[in-house]
């Protein structure tokens, strides 16, 4: 049913178009007078020291990794959830095994200290 989903594309394009229109409107109305001091990076009045584009705390990466594992798992669970009532006990037991393995993974990450924010 491509017609069903075409509305998503229409909404995305319409969203971008509306926002661009609003920006254009403000461009026409608002003053535009940039100069050096005004365009400086805002740091509460202090001159900035050093670049902001730096290598960042890699702890974010570990959380990102755990997130991917659990989000992919959630995607696996959705088809199971939709068909759950028609599948019965077999699906329940099977999915419990799946969830148990994942929980074991969570406990492992927990014990390893990966869930600890430094």
């Amino acid at each position: 049913m491509p017609a069903d989903y075409s509305v998503v594309l229409v909404f995305l394009i319409a969203g971008i178009a509306i926002v661009s229109f609003v920006f254009l409107l403000s461009r026409l109305i608002a003053p535009h007078n940039p100069y050096k001091v005004k365009n400086e990076t805002y740091e509460c009045g202090e001159p900035t020291i050093g670049p902001s584009w730096i290598q960042f705390n890699n702890h974010f990466y570990i959380f990102g990794l755990i997130f991917v594992v659990f989000d992919v798992e959630a995607i696996f669970l959705f088809p199971w959830a939709v068909a759950y009532k028609s599948l019965g006990y077999f699906a329940f037991v099977e999915m419990m095994i799946f969830i148990f393995i994942l929980l074991a993974g969570l406990v492992y990450a927990w014990k390893k200290g990966a869930l600890k924010w430094v």
Partner: peptide
Amino acid sequence: GSNNKYALLGGMRSAAQVVSYEV
């Protein structure tokens, strides 16, 4: 994109927070 330290911290924090609470 702001190239500002506060903004970078805020962006990183919101990413970590949203992915954590997404699950």
